[in-house]
Design a protein around this nucleic acid. Structure first.
Lengths: 205, 205
DNA sequence: CGTGACCCTGACCAATTGGTCAATAATTTC
DNA sequence: GAAATTATTGACCAATTGGTCAGGGTCACG
């Protein structure tokens, strides 16, 4: 249980670590790191508290593991820009992918939001290295499209920020969105149309 | 000290309650409700813990007071749409106002974000009544502009969501924005240009 | 079927935390 | 300037929380 990967983990380890991470995801997402208790995590996972601490050395380790796993999934779509594809469609595909992630993985989105909100104490390096690198690469591709006159000229970094903020908004601020819309709305469905419209207009040459 | 407003508060009460609220704002914004401790608040305010609890009955009361005050300021700009003004300029003014609030009151933005992220336990009614009412009023004005052909047709609710999410993003995700941009950037300055461009293109008829 | 490795838990601990209170100090008021 | 009111605090408490540990149960495997 000390090592993260070596000697391929027993069936039980595999199952219980997964239960814990899954339970912890909800608890951390809903209460923040300091607000989450190991007891809550244990209960969410259907295990006893000492048993949780048998699989993870500490609350921090659970959190760190969760964050690390999350980051890969979270950033992957940004690497998929194809310089040879149709620029507008490439961007719209990314927008849709991010929106679907908000819809299908709201807990992950909130976990991430919580972490950044608190100043990203466990993420600053990752942010300044990995994330910056990935974004910079995407920015180069987008800037090239703009220079070729295949996309309207806007600040590429802020284009990306706009996509992140608007798509994640529907996961992170879900209660607010639903409260304002009232019943009888499918926020994500409407958002998809709206964002499609928005980016077509903004990026058309 | 029990009543919130009656018998106009001594000079000392006025001063110390303000100190506490100001300290608490930073602590709650940076740690979430459960993550904040009265000790931290006391220290931030330069008072002893029992003294803090002399002016506010509990941690909850401090938080509630903060949230109530915040909400007024936060929602005010949305009520300022002038049906007789120039539609595009009205919207752009609102965008600018919200962005400046993010820049000048980031703690307030984060406090609010924290609360919504955790499911708005203390705000659900306010959200479903006050907020919804204010938004609905703004939506009527915007929809009228669109019907008159003075603004492009887009879903008004989601137009408002887009403004909220993009402007608040620069306060709430500040560390991420700065990490990605690297040094030598003024996020808010660039954002103002970007958003101006974005909404002009999207809303032009 | 035995033995060693793995799995699980009740009981416990020290630190933190929200909150109380009696006693004391500072201010206001007359 | 003394009484009444308001402000402040050290000491304290009960509950919660992250984490430990000894001991007992269970499983894989020869």
């Amino acid at each position: 249980m000390t090592n993260g990967k070596k000697s391929p983990m027993t069936r039980i380890q595999q199952k219980n670590r997964q239960l814990i991470l899954d339970g912890a995801l909800g608890v951390f997402a809903g209460n923040g790191f300091r607000g989450a208790t190991i007891d809550q995590i244990a209960q969410a996972a259907g295990l006893s508290k000492p048993n949780v601490l048998y699989y993870f050395r500490s609350k921090d380790e659970i959190h760190k593991t969760l964050l690390t796993r999350l980051l890969d999934m979270w950033l992957a779509p940004l690497s998929r820009f194809d310089p040879d594809g149709d620029p507008l469609e490439e961007v719209l595909t990314y927008v849709r992918a991010k929106l679907h992630m908000s819809r299908d993985y709201p807990r992950e989105s909130r976990l991430f939001a919580n972490e950044i909100l608190q100043g990203a104490p466990h993420l600053t390096e990752v942010l300044e290295e990995d994330l910056k690198t990935i974004v910079d690469r995407a920015v180069v591709v987008i800037a090239a499209w703009m220079d070729q006159g295949r996309l309207a000229q806007v600040a590429p970094h802020h284009l990306i920020f706009s996509i992140w903020s608007m798509t994640q908004h529907y996961a992170d601020f879900d209660v607010q969105v639903r409260a304002v819309l009232g019943p009888g709305h499918d926020p994500f469905d409407e958002a998809e149309q709206f964002l499609d419209q928005l980016y077509r207009k903004m990026l058309a040459v």
